[in-house]
Write a protein that binds this DNA or RNA. Sequence first.
DNA 1: TCTGGGGTCCTAGGACCC
DNA 2: TCTGGGGTCCTAGGACCC
Length: 421
Amino acid sequence: MFATLDSMSDSPAILHADLDAFYASVEQLLNPSLRGKPIAVGGGVVLAASYEAKAFGVRGGMPGRQARRLCPHLQFVGGHFSEYQRLGDQVIEIVRDFTPLIERISIDEAFADVSGSIHLFGTPAAIATRIRQRARDEVGLAVSVGVARTKHLAKIASQVAKPDGMIVVDPSTELDFLHPLPVDLVWGIGPVTRKRLAEKGIATIGQLAAMPGQSLEQLLGRAIGTKLGELAWNRDHRDVETSHRAGSVGAQSAMGRQEASDEVIETTLRHLADRVATRLRAKNKAGRTITTRVRFADLRAVTRSITLPAAVSATSILAAIAGDLVRTALADHPDEAVISLLAISVAHLEDEPALQLELPIELGDDERRPGTEAGAARWVLDKSVDEVRQRFGRRAVNYASVALSGGRSVPDAFRELAEKD
DNA sequence: TCTGGGGTCCTAGGACCC
DNA sequence: TCTGGGGTCCTAGGACCC
């Protein structure tokens, strides 16, 4: 309805491709008996819901119990996680047949700049149509596509086009398209901001655009206010970025409700430090800022962080520092005896030199002092463990205390999927 | 019978340097 | 002795995205 293709030719053409209800659609693809039925991937929490389930109000991130209440016939299925990666990659490769300028933002979503592809493949609308058709024919999945002059508009268009649709926003009708839409389609407006705007009587992007920039900044802060103002006025100048370097690497573990005992903390941190440090070493990275997060029984969370003079990537050193930080956080909250989550994140990443010399820090024993022989030995041990795991699988070697006993609600396979770059 | 796991970016105060 | 301002880094918290 917004497609008048002629005026598109001189403008940049950005395409946003987004697979519909991705995990759930893959499950229905793999198992035809699930097609047309309300299903959810996950268990304790809904990772993805089919459109049939969404019709009942089931949403991603929702507790499984609530989802079942909304949709009594909801069928929970375990995830075929390696298939998600494979099929997601396959669709991206189809897009890549039309342009190398691709910015993949998640397993099931990517921007593509097709401005330079028009003389080869036809109008952006024609390209989008072929991508959708090929994804359907060759992979068996529905992908919704938005096409516009900017990333922001292309992304909004693909959301509006769902399910299994496509919208091309002609440059001459951009504001007509944008302004009647609800504010939460704007990238960066979540539940909190939506509510704050609603209290001011602002529900549509047009109303947002009509708001004086000053009061917008007053309401939401300088950067957010400015950014949202620009997006509402359709002034988005971001390019498609084909490479992204990671700014941080982290891992977390939700643990239900557990007493904050030394044993629980040490075991969990050891496990998390192992995951994070292994991934850092695989990227040949090390990081200077270590952040831990402790969530209490009532889901309030606190963080403690430290920035070191040199970057670390050895498992035992990371675990030791994280332990100190978590103990600091707990000491600051002496009334909290029960915790529900621990997390470790490493930022300020640097390329790791071939031979690692980690910093000497003020810690008790030699093993925790990376500048020492013992510290170097730990790092060498870590590297050899990495190599054995590479050859024989993740389970081949475990640090003695790493094996966690309690059942976790999300399969390890999903974690490994989330770790993929 | 309360919510998983991976991230990014922004804000604000304080320390510190020039 | 008193008075100023700018820039950068660090830490803690929070909103948001997929």
